[in-house]
């Protein structure tokens, strides 16, 4: 793996912050990751990326030496996972219950059939999807401590939660290296440590669902801002657009009315899982889940041109001028 080291400075000023931020990038987890730190050890970005590299080795679906590959090719026998992997699988299984199946790490064979894992896109026959869905479902998996059993014919992948967890682990590494102000850009998953050196919030743009340009911005600190949108990976066939976020119940691209879901909260792992889940669940179920929780906010953009946001983010959310006529609906704790 080639590390792209782009130092933009590094001398520490009198206040403990670098005169210029130190930034480092690498291709990891099927994305381009950039770590920027404003103080602490100048080697912290490299260490954070190396932690992401460690996790990628454990979680890759295609690397025959990974733990996930071992579980997927075990022929139904138990496989002992590392603590990193077992913790994340356990979290994903709990999210499967919490989202009533909207997040499902066992959907991988269906995703592969559509070609979203390779870029060789195709629309599968209905009968093939039905057949594959018979081998999908988290209730068929068993996790006993660190021992996982993936039944023969099933496969799991941690793509819907892995980058978020990697971000949380990278933030831990940065903290261990004296960093209190940093920004991680993990291919559009943004994770922030502290605020900017002048104490102000980071300004994070929310992409327009078309994928071109930005719809809004949020001003936030010390949290993750993670978006799932159809624009990230899709193909067009016979005038129809097929995107990579599938509804586990149908095995087809999710059409809940939500075309982009941004989740903001302290835990990158949770925000990553929820951005996919809320896209699948739609606005009503998303609001129900939010009211039953206290650890995230969201911005949902709908196919009829509305932005639905939760009240926790109301004061830090601004639409760009060209979208200022868009309807913004605020979801509140009390209906």
């Amino acid at each position: 793996m080639t590390a792209a080291c782009i130092f933009m400075g590094g001398c520490s000023g009198g206040n403990g912050y670098f005169d210029e931020p130190v930034s480092k990038s690498d291709f990891l987890m099927d994305t381009y990751m950039t770590v920027t730190v404003y103080n602490g050890s100048s080697s912290a970005p490299e260490k954070a990326l190396s932690r992401a590299g460690e996790l990628e080795k454990k979680w890759s679906v295609t690397d025959s030496s990974s733990e996930i590959y071992a579980a997927d090719h075990s022929g139904g026998k138990p496989v002992t996972l590392s603590e990193d992997t077992a913790d994340l699988v356990s979290f994903a299984l709990s999210m499967n219950e919490k989202t009533d199946g909207a997040l499902d790490i066992s959907l991988y064979p269906v995703l592969r059939e559509w070609g979203f894992t390779t870029g060789e896109y195709r629309v599968p026959e209905d009968s093939r999807i039905t057949e594959l869905l018979e081998s999908v479902g988290c209730e068929k998996l068993s996790l006993d401590g660190r021992d996982i059993t993936v039944p023969d014919g099933m496969s799991i992948d941690l793509g819907s939660v892995g980058k978020g967890r990697a971000g949380d682990e990278m933030i831990k590494t940065l903290k261990e290296n004296g960093v209190t102000s940093a920004m991680l850009d993990l291919g559009g998953n943004i994770q922030l440590l502290g605020s900017k050196p002048d104490g102000s919030d980071f300004r994070i743009a929310v992409r327009h669902p078309s994928g071109e340009g930005n719809l809004a911005k949020v001003e936030v600190s010390d949290c993750a801002v993670i978006t799932s949108g159809g624009y990230e990976r899709f193909f067009e066939q016979d005038g129809n657009i097929y995107w990579h976020i599938l509804d586990p119940k149908t095995g087809c691209p999710a059409h809940s009315g939500v075309v982009s879901a941004t989740v903001i909260g302290k835990s990158g792992t949770l925000c990553d899982a929820l951005s996919t889940s809320l896209f699948v669940m739609g606005t009503e179920r998303a609001a129900d889940l939010w009211r039953a929780s206290d650890d995230f906010d969201y911005i949902l953009v709908t196919d009829d041109g509305r932005a639905v946001i939760t009240e926790g983010i109301e004061n830090s959310f601004t639409l760009y001028d060209e979208f200022s006529s868009m309807t913004v609906e605020v979801v509140r704790r009390e209906k």
Partner: peptide, 26 residues
């Protein structure tokens, strides 16, 4: 903030200083 990324060919096109009035895009 949003760079153009061709992952298979390790190619990135991006604004040098983030561009615009934001620090990054999600």
């Amino acid at each position: 903030g949003v760079p153009i990324v061709c992952l298979p060919n390790h190619l990135i096109i991006r604004y040098k200083n983030g561009g615009g009035d934001t620090d990054a895009a999600a």
